[in-house]
Design a protein around this nucleic acid. Sequence first.
DNA 1: TTAGGGTTAG
Length: 415
Amino acid sequence: MPKALFYFHEMKIQRVKPNVVTFSTLLDAFCKEGMMQEAAKFFEDMKQLGLRPNEFTYTSLIDGYCKMGSLNEALKLMNKMLQAGVPMNIVSYTALVDGLCEAGRMEEAEEVFKEMLKGGVAANQIFCTSLIHGYFKAGKVEKAMDLIKEMRGHGMDPDISFYGTLIWGLCNNGKLDEAKLLIGKITAEGIHANHVIYTILMHASFKAGHKVEGLNVLKEMQDMGVVPTVVTCGAVVDGLCKSGAIEEASTYFNWMEDMDLETNLLVYTALIDGLCKNNFLGEAEKLFYQMVKEDLAPDEVSYTSLIDGNLRHGNFERAFELRNEMINNGIKLGLKTYASFIWWLCQFNQVEQARVFLNEMNEKGVLPDEAIYNCLIRKYHELGNMDEAIAVQKEMIERGLFNGISDCVVTNEQM
DNA sequence: TTAGGGTTAG
């Protein structure tokens, strides 16, 4: 990116005028880095220079906003695009629908799909794969299957990414066996599963509690000549940690070096979390600082893992120290960080301190979830402080988080 | 010449 910008400025110095393609290329690079403010600035700059953004320019921006979860910005851009007389094509629609699917906004995605067809733009395999991913993610297996049938009816030939999505969807909807059968079927048809598909299957096996099976998938993958990536190893380390096989997890973590694979934040965090949850807090702390030494900047997730580890061991002082370190490094506490503080403070009967965190969440605009409220209500109730239990439950109801079937302990009569 | 889909962490 800095090199690209250097050439861009060099162009200006040499009085070579950048055109729409030059701007779109740079703008797309900013979007892919998640630097949307810079991208938006380039967008304005090019218009100022009298250049007319085209479907490529708009699509990069729509995709960028979608990837960072700013769906409303993306939708606004679609309208701007149409107003500017630049028609949406299948690529622009795919970027938008994929964003809506990722955010679980399936009704809107279907609406956009209808509009697309009305406008005479035909769906293709990439578009359908995005929509199928959305349906699976939302647990709408039947809808996903219907669309797959329709795709076949339209003569679309499924590719490896499509199968990746399908296998992921089956695994995430409790159909691990069907996913395995499907891999066998496509292999027989001459389509070879790749590292992504094996990683999906392995992760699903571990998640279902089948440790041996998970490791078998890794072995099968290697036997088939598919080389594990850092993502594969991350899934192995995480899977083993969650199975309580912490020593094996450490072995695979070190194995990455033998494989010439560079570890990343995710793999470190998986192992740090595993160490914390398996009573190796000292090792977790050591690994955390080894990670920092390797220039991997801890994020909210890695801090939360270590904070949670300290809290579960009653090391409140250290947890607060890490919280401060996190803030000093410009990382905001998220829902999981607050949930961890509130949960463990309640477990150690420090309900007032937990309440301070709930208040802080409200001040900072982090929406608490049902579990956080229930945890506090239960603890207040247990300690005999019904006034506060009722007050917290009222807040929960006001926020629309009380669905009446949760295990809240304050009944209507008591309120 | 520039844009879209599947995998891992609290």
